[in-house]
Design a protein around this nucleic acid. Structure first.
Lengths: 328, 328
DNA sequence: TTGTATGCGTTATCAG
DNA sequence: CTGATAACGCATACAA
């Protein structure tokens, strides 16, 4: 029995003949080792849980790929679970961490209170990525949302736009930061910041379309000449709705998105947007997490990933667009 | 120690006073039960692994949601892993099943040889869903691909199309069935089946665009008057490319997709496509799997899910749009 | 080089 | 109603 264990763990201290005999029997009886017993004895499972708000989140899937690469490179398996942005579900899955079914957890859009996350982080390896909870004491990897939104807004203003609407999901910390950046740009150019131009969305296409309708039927106010959507999906809804209303996005009204998901290159018109390096974000977050797992003592601080603006047809009315065909 | 276990398992045979005292101490010392020890003692983990070819697969994410619902309803947790269509990766994750980290596995697009899957299925609970491996002896849940493709092709023919191209990924069993259905419809109407009109794709947008370019530059052959893409993503590439070539999809050339992912409603023109009930597919597959887990003796056979054609703008040149007439 | 004995954290059985 | 004890499957220290 001990010998079998040794064979399975490549212990050199086992005779070649015994080894092959053991392997043969293993094959014969169809024996498969039980990972539970193993992990019970040696604590690490070498598995990481990544929590996603939904499966098929276009943006986070890129982040997930980056995380996956970093994990595999260091010999960790990665599994995903989906919270549907429900606190209760999230807690259920966090149990996998506290009950030692995984060695660490990567949050991409936690809905839990800051205090709860801080408590978890104090006891177990956990890292936040992409979306963060304000005040939660967990290492965080993401972009500078305030600055990115500032740059987009400034670009629109410099292109001649004066009535710039913004669609955000105020529950997101990142959205609140983006609103700040937007306001900073407006203030800097002396353009009034009208609350009527702030519309709420939930990052769905439908909510973008709905927001668009509201923006173009404001009672005592001119309609916007630019719409800055907090995600490419909402921008897609905006564009779709504009066509239905007889507007020409990119000419009558500028549209800017956020995330640079694949969809942005396919929409008609193609969508100007903010590109975040998803792979890098996921990779760095995973590296931080693994470091925390393997060196529990280490102190960590947040990591900021770069971003850049991508200009496409949806702002062609005010500037250069990315040249040529992007699809081969 | 035994009493603590009883408290944690809601055993009624424990005095109210003891119970609360235990809970208090648990809270004080921050004790968290270890799931490994638990599952070692009582074999089931009440966890299911769902294997996906990629994260953010638009179509499979719907299936995953259905599977998730069915699992939760019966008290199972569900975790996902991503194979990137690599056999080796897939085998790594299958170990979670053989090593008892999960109770069952749901394949959505296995790349493994039929024999290997059959062997696995003989020893462990496993089910295939959506995409199946020909000859693998595992229960399978999916639609009638041959019939669906037949219906699409017949619709195009009846609308007056005579040069119908088809884009498939021949590695998929479902694609091969769809090709059969396409050929059956052509044969039935006495239209020649030209191999030049069969183009390969890999379900990416890019491959759709590429296929489109090939179809519209066939040397000694008229270009198609309809393109039937094996997935909505490829159809998106086709449409994008048509615009770049100055063609008007839905008028000059009809376009039909497959899957009815959300994108289909947003594209310009909106995309006619085959709708499969993703939720139902996932739900039935999970139910089959759980049944197999809880009643290992049970015999099972495949389950066929209904489908229907959705008519939108991309075929507006030949018929009604947006009616969604039910076929199956 | 191999076998024996122990403990990882649970739960189930049995005695008290 | 509660406490002691064995067993789940594995890895390891130690004995042979």
């Amino acid at each position: 029995m001990a010998t079998v264990s040794r064979v399975l763990n490549d212990d050199p201290a086992v005779a070649e003949e015994t080894r092959s005999r053991v392997l043969q029997v293993i094959d014969q009886v169809g024996y498969a080792p039980n990972a539970l017993g193993r992990s019970l004895r040696k604590n690490p499972t070498r598995r990481i849980l990544v929590l996603l708000p939904s499966i098929s989140h276009q943006f986070l899937s890129g982040v997930a790929r980056g995380a996956e690469q970093a994990a595999w490179r260091r010999g960790y398996q990665i599994i995903f679970s989906v919270t549907h942005s429900k606190e209760e579900l999230e807690r259920q899955y966090i149990k996998m961490l506290t009950q030692r079914s995984v060695d660490g957890i990567l949050f991409t859009a936690s809905q839990l209170p800051a205090q709860e996350l801080s408590g978890l982080g104090a006891r177990y390896p956990a890292v936040m990525c992409s979306e963060c909870v304000e005040g939660a004491k967990l290492p965080y990897v993401g972009i500078d949302n305030e600055q990115a939104a500032y740059e987009v807004t400034r670009y629109l203003i410099e292109g001649g736009c004066r009535r710039i609407a913004i669609i955000t999901r105020p529950e997101d910390y990142s959205s609140r930061l983006r609103l700040k950046g937007y306001q900073r740009a407006l203030a800097e150019k002396g353009i009034p910041d009208l609350p009527e131009y702030h519309v709420k969305g939930d990052h769905s296409i439908t909510s973008g379309a709905y927001a668009c309708r509201r923006l173009f039927s404001l009672p005592n106010l001119q309609p916007p000449d630019a719409v800055f959507a907090g995600s490419d999906l909402m921008a897609a809804g905006v564009i779709r709705r504009m066509y239905e209303m007889g507007l020409r996005p990119g000419e009558d009204v500028m549209v800017f998105g956020f995330d640079n998901i694949e969809l942005a290159r396919i929409l008609t018109p193609t969508l100007s947007t903010v590109s975040q390096s998803k792979l890098q974000m996921g990779r760095r977050a995973m590296e931080l997490l693994l470091e925390r797992i393997e060196t529990p003592a280490c102190t960590q601080r947040d990591v900021r990933i770069g971003h850049k603006l991508i200009f496409r047809e949806s702002t062609r009315g005010i500037g250069v667009q990315e040249s040529g065909r992007e699809i081969t």
